[in-house]
Computed example of a mutant assay.
Amino acid sequence: MLSEFQETLLQSVQAFQSTQLVKNKYENVLQHLDSGILLFDSDGVLTFINVQMAKLLELPRQSLIGCNLLQLLRHPYLSRFKQKKIARIYRETIFHRRKYHELIDEYGRHWLITVTYGDQMDGDFLLSVKDVSDYKQIEQTAYQNDKLAMLGKISAAIAHEIRNPLTAIRGFIQLLRPHLLQLGKDEYARIILMEIDRANDIIHEFLNSSKPSAPQKTVVSVPSLLKDTLLLSESEALMKGCEMRLQQINESLLVSIDVKQIKQVILNIIKNAMEAIEEVQGDHAGMIEIGAKQEGNYVNISVKDNGNGMDKTLLTRLFDPFFTTKEKGTGLGLSVSYKIIKNHGGTILVDSMKGEGTVFMISLPLTHQV
């Protein structure tokens, strides 16, 4: 009788130990997920938080276990930004029954938040947070490529239809110009011809934005490329009271590029930087810094200015064809630049904050002299 009791007790202990081992194993898995995990029980008390979530909140794990939501929001080291986001998620989950949320944090990263609750959770609330910044970047790139492809179809259909009548109008105006000159109205002819030429320039830029010509590549050193490009901008920068500074760059960095196209991209970015500086100049000393450094098999060329900067809404549309904030801009310069860099197997990114200036980063594959 006693031996049967001891055997049953031993089996119970072994079963408990086995269950505990399984529990520890799964808890260890949850602790090291790349997603943040929070678990609140049916009373609203935080019973589990993994390492990743503690890092995201920038709070020590042990100070959070046992807290309810109100205590979490009142944590002395929780930032005001995170307090607002947590409160918003709670409000939308409880009152609007939303289970999926997307937000951008103070560092510009995109997060997908999923809240699981209901009968399957026995009253508990499971909240998981995943960084989806890379997916958003891929989505944005695909969206941009789709728009450029559509732009190409439109331009192919209408470009010649516009150019042909413009050419005829220009020819007739030139024929009429001597008669207008006799009437003292030559100024009219000059203005008409100038406006027709401007329309042709816009059409040309429009066509290039949809399908820039294939790169005619040559191997050049990055320092010489940037020095030559700066020489083309120095006089304009001087007139606008803007200092340009080229950082020290490794002479061995080589790229295989269409020099004319890449210069076009960099000059366009520099011109935008000058205009951004003009908006806030006054006593403000304008500065454009250009540099380049190797990152793996790529070289990152940066153009940084201390101009007016841009807000996040503007940044999301920056490479859209025809989007511009300039009174006389066509909105094609940066969309053309995007396409040129893509055709070279590179990427172009921008980081900016209103009132803090802007940084453009062009990444191009390095090459080796054969």
Rank of each mutant, 00 (worst) to 15 (best):
S256L: 03
D41P: 07
V299W: 03
V13I: 06
D351C: 07
A149G: 05
N250D: 15
N297F: 08
S363D: 05
E236S: 12
G333L: 00
E139D: 04
H179K: 09
E251Y: 06
Q17P: 01
L226F: 06
L253E: 02
L33T: 00
E243N: 11
I191Y: 11
S221G: 12
V265R: 04
E4C: 01
K328W: 07
I94Y: 13
G357S: 00
P321W: 08
I341K: 03
F5L: 12
L193I: 15
L148G: 06
N28E: 10
M353K: 15
G123T: 13
L238F: 03
E102Q: 09
K84R: 13
H110E: 04
S12G: 07
L57V: 09
N308I: 10
D41T: 05
S233F: 06
I49P: 04
D351W: 02
V299P: 02
N250E: 15
A189E: 07
T8H: 11
P165Q: 04
S363W: 04
T8W: 10
M274A: 06
K326A: 13
N250C: 11
A276H: 10
A157I: 07
V132E: 00
A54V: 04
G286P: 10
G118L: 03
N164L: 13
K84Y: 06
K342P: 01
M353R: 14
S213A: 15
I288Y: 08
F323G: 00
D258W: 13
E278V: 03
N306P: 08
V45Q: 03
Y90S: 06
K153Q: 15
V350N: 05
S3P: 01
S224T: 15
N164Y: 11
A54D: 09
D311Q: 06
N300I: 14
Q182A: 07
Y117D: 13
S352M: 06
G307L: 02
I202T: 12
V220A: 05
L112S: 10
M361P: 00
N24G: 03
Y135K: 13
Q281P: 00
V219A: 08
A273Y: 01
S3N: 10
I362E: 05
Y100E: 14
D228F: 06
S233W: 05
N208R: 13
M353G: 10
N343I: 01
I154S: 07
F40Q: 08
E58P: 01
S79I: 04
R109C: 12
P223M: 01
C67G: 01
M274H: 05
H101D: 10
K354H: 08
H368W: 07
S233P: 00
E195I: 10
Q264M: 14
T218P: 03
V350L: 08
Q281H: 08
T367I: 05
N164F: 07
S256G: 04
S363I: 08
S79F: 05
L315F: 02
L112G: 03
D320F: 11
L38Y: 00
E278D: 08
L127P: 02
Q20A: 10
S235Y: 09
F172N: 11
K84M: 12
P212K: 06
I65Q: 04
S252H: 11
L69V: 02
K240L: 10
